[in-house]
Design a protein around this nucleic acid. Structure first.
Lengths: 122, 122
DNA sequence: CCGGATCGATTACGGATGTAAACGATGGAG
DNA sequence: CTCCATCGTTTACATCCGTAATCGATCCGG
């Protein structure tokens, strides 16, 4: 059962902090993403139906929490993109970005550190 | 106007080689992706309507060629994923992969080379 | 010159998605 | 006790997507 992009915004909020009430989730969404409350309610219900989240009653309201691990979702999505666009491999994606948008110094530094830590493992 | 995942398979074929006739495109699609001919025709028409490709008459048939540059598409998709899942930054994605599936030696080597070439630019 | 094969164009159709209003239960204010 | 505000639930609806059948024009073999 797939999590759509709109739904992923809700998951995002829950992955950042949970459990949260519907109201809190609405508040936690990016400002530029201004959905009607009803819209978020719909997304919550769809996620419930997909067993991507669970709801625990807390008085008259519910507190929601993720059932799908962020890592699993992120991995599936990322791998899907790599498969579709980069023959499933990571380096070409990084290469792509290094040519288009210059990588930020921050990114380069992070990547460098990452590779070093890989060395250490060996 | 967005290019869907199914449509992107067709684009993939055209980016690899163009112009191609519908028949050639069908042949060029991955074997595991066995669509009815009619399906590919539909996708071609949708892509035409979206101005993602163009068709030039060649006798009784058409030869199709991409109008959208592969780089542009790839960039939009990739950036979208990064924005949705990694706060728009690249390093966290790489970090993610380095934790889950071990990066292949190939990938690591490629990344290392990439970073070195970035150094050279400076 | 005719009928079948072949193209592209048109139409179909169920399910997912984005977006949201309407409805029904219920708890709290007065 | 009653009525409104507030939740979650149900229903709505246009569009997109995946998948494909059908239709109409046209070319080729006989």
């Amino acid at each position: 059962m797939r999590i759509s992009t709109a739904e992923s915004q809700v998951m995002r909020a829950l992955w950042a902090k949970s459990p949260l009430s519907a109201e809190e989730i609405i508040a936690a969404l990016p400002v530029d993403q201004d959905w009607a409350d009803a819209t978020v309610k719909t997304l919550l219900n769809r996620l419930l139906k997909k067993d991507a989240i669970a709801a625990d009653r807390d008085g008259r309201r519910f507190l929601y929490r993720p059932l799908v691990a962020q890592g699993d979702y992120v991995h599936a999505e990322s791998q899907g993109l790599l498969d579709r666009l980069f023959d499933g491999r990571l380096a070409p994606l990084v290469a792509h970005f290094s040519q288009r948008e210059k990588l930020s110094d921050q990114d380069v530094a992070d990547l460098r550190r990452l590779l070093e830590s890989l060395d250490d493992d060996k």
